[in-house]
């Protein structure tokens, strides 16, 4: 299955470089490019991509707003991977809050970048788990309300959420809990449904903001 990508960055050089790098992967294809957030919305509507690679700072409309609009249009598709030059905490957290599934550094090794795209498309793990968890934890005021804040979770689901928030992938959770991957997938889906979260990243944000996880 080929993943359809849209590249959003205000610099043509960044876009053309990314296009060559990503298209050299057999399972990735770039179906569109955009130079501003507004263009991104239009291109995404026309091309129906799986993943949008979104720059943060752009003229006309920035990547955070564009992500919000994309998610509002259809929570299921596409997923957004934010691309950033620097690890500016504030921007990154705001883009995750806006609905991005993860972020990657533009200076990352091409293999890491490609991995991040595949992870975002599959949703089986967090992208850059440690960094993401720390980012979310440090931007969430600790309310220490404890597990009571998410009462509708079963014991198993609560355990799974704790491991998801710790950054473990489905395979790692399966090994940890002596369950099959399929069972873990079912539990994760149950957790996402009950939390009203689109993906793991949003579930982790909900876990921290409710006080289920504490920083």
């Amino acid at each position: 299955m080929t993943l359809r990508l849209v590249l959003v960055d205000d610099d043509v050089l960044v876009r053309s470089g990314l296009r060559v790098i990503l298209e050299s992967e057999p399972d990735l294809t770039v179906v569109g490019e955009a130079g501003t957030g507004r263009e991104a919305l239009e291109v995404a509507a026309r091309t129906d991509p799986d993943v949008v690679l979104m720059d943060v700072r752009m003229p006309d409309m920035d990547g955070i707003t564009a992500t919000e609009r994309l998610i509002a249009r259809d929570p299921g598709r596409p997923r957004v991977l934010v691309l950033t030059t620097f690890e500016d905490d504030d921007y990154l957290f705001r883009s995750l809050k806006a609905g991005a599934s993860g972020f990657a550094l533009k200076r990352a090794d091409p293999d890491e970048l490609v991995d991040a795209i595949r992870i975002v498309a599959r949703g089986s793990s967090l992208v850059l788990p440690d960094l993401t968890r720390r980012l979310i934890a440090s931007h969430t005021p600790s309310r220490a309300r404890g597990a009571a804040a998410l009462p509708e979770l079963t014991g198993r689901e609560a355990d799974v959420l704790r491991l998801v928030a710790a950054g473990l992938s489905n395979a790692e959770i399966a090994a940890e809990m002596f369950l099959s991957r399929e069972t873990v997938k079912t539990h994760v889906s149950g957790v996402l449904l009950k939390l009203g979260a689109r993906d793991r990243t949003q579930a982790v944000i909900a876990a921290y903001e409710s006080g289920f996880m504490t920083a």
Partner: peptide, 25 residues
């Protein structure tokens, strides 16, 4: 951030891409 950071990022991606186009898989 705006000048050096951005120029280096663009250069890095161009260089990576150029290498791939010269020895594609």
């Amino acid at each position: 951030h705006d000048t050096i950071g951005h120029a280096l990022t663009a250069s890095l991606l161009q260089a990576t891409a150029a290498r791939r186009t010269l020895s594609p898989g």
